[in-house]
Amino acid sequence: MGFREYRIGSIMFGVALATSMVVTVYMPGLDISNTTATATALEKQLTYGKVAGFDYGDPFLHGDDKPIKVILKKDPKTGAAIDETVAYVFKPGTSLPSGLVHDHINGAAIQALSVSLGKTDQVSVEAGGVYLVVKSVKNGVETPYIELASATRGWTIDATLKAADQEILAGAGKVMFIREGCWWCHTLLPEQTHDWQSFGRPPMLGDFNGESPTTFGSDRKAPDLLHVGSRNSSKEWMMMHFFNPRLVQPHSIMPRYDYLWGGVDKKGNNIDLAKWDEEFDAYREGSRVYPPEVPEYADNSEIRYLIDYVLDLK
């Protein structure tokens, strides 16, 4: 390449950029795509559904088009008592996570078991279904796989929802987590090297297969939340903290999420925010002994989704 020889320069530019992309996109892509999913990854896929960000199914990020996680203590079909089981209910039309749509997401062994034992070749968006994460033990090696309980155990969607002890709307909650920008301050990534002592186990290589988006977060202005549900499982505390963080943590800089109540409490009464603030100010100034009561949220309110999600981060 001599002086002002742009044709060669352009070719070299192309070669340099292509080499760089091979090393930084293609090679890592191959490596990462070959990882085998862990049970955590399968559970996350079934909890969060297809995409927690913008998607056709939920363009305004209201938490639509998401599965329901339920906890069962009796068999939905027979009614017999069973060990506490987590099932994931996809109502008809709910989009499926990529691990159920594509064959290569979860790794060959898991895919083979899911198809042969779990009947996941019968999944369908139109019909919906009830899913489980099950472990198969062979030669002392545990392999998790997905089971379509509607096909293997005859659990229908209605029966499962009816038999459910508890419904956890963590899939819709993750949408709230993203839309409300929680991840601008709270990371979901305890760092590998040091802070697992306070924030818990850092994630493993296969913990993310099929999750979208991963929202690690990059700027930690607040505690890491990956295992927050294990540290603090109180729904009441979460409710107070979301309504006004200063209620439970006087020095917190977290924004108030009172608007996620949707203006009404559990009984459908309107929430008088101005009055609440007045009473809270009185409490802060010491002229009131107890802080005002935080209104309980409605079952279909956005704050319910968010609290379900946060408490589900185990």
Binding site: V51, S98, I105, L205, F208, N209, S212, F216
Partner: peptide, 8 residues
């Protein structure tokens, strides 16, 4: 719709 660590 790439997912997981590839997305990250």
């Amino acid at each position: 719709h790439l997912t997981g660590l590839n997305e990250a």
